[in-house]
């Protein structure tokens, strides 16, 4: 790999170009493979496409760039503390808006840290949601018959289908 390469260019699924530094790309195995491909291939002009939309990819790259120094060199406790606070701010997003896209992207890009963070954020948001709100964001229909609803209510008094 040429030491002069510090960043690579990737395309989002919408066809927009994004730059990601080599050290940040190391947070994702698939990105890292792409990076090696790009750097070793004779045809360096080819720009790889990442199957993540632009809006989501901006956030994913932001996460990578922030976490790269720590992931590559380790960090002190105070850095870890600072990063934790940053993660909380970073994750202040609406589940309807982008969170599930981030989850899908983190899963696809094998980014364990971001995936765990997004799962926990989703779980924390869901704690405060009603059953019908949950159905909406997960695209689920209430398929219980009225008898089955009655039976569940008997087993779990106070449970709500709304």
């Amino acid at each position: 790999m040429s030491s002069s390469v510090e960043a690579i260019t990737v395309l989002s699924s919408d066809g927009d170009e994004f730059k990601i530094t080599v050290s940040a790309a190391k947070l994702s195995k698939p990105l890292n493979w792409m990076l090696e491909d790009v750097c070793f291939s004779d045809d360096c002009d080819e720009v790889p496409t990442i199957e993540v939309n632009s809006k989501t990819l901006v956030k994913v790259i932001e996460y990578c760039e922030k976490h790269a120094p720590r992931a590559n060199s380790g960090a002190s406790d105070s850095d870890a503390e600072e990063l934790k606070k940053w993660d909380i701010e970073f994750m202040k997003m609406d589940v309807k808006d982008i969170l599930f896209h981030i989850l899908m992207a983190a899963n696809y890009l094998h980014m364990e840290g971001l995936y765990d963070l997004a799962c926990q954020t989703a779980a924390d948001l869901m704690k405060g949601m009603t059953v019908s709100q949950i159905r909406k964001i997960f695209h689920i229909k209430n398929d219980f018959s009225s008898e089955e609803q009655e039976q569940l209510r008997r087993q779990h008094p106070g449970c709500s289908f709304d």
Binding site: M126, I134, R135, I140, F144, S160
Partner: peptide
Amino acid sequence: IRFYCVSKQW
């Protein structure tokens, strides 16, 4: 336990 009521699958 609350989310039992979401759907049969859940």
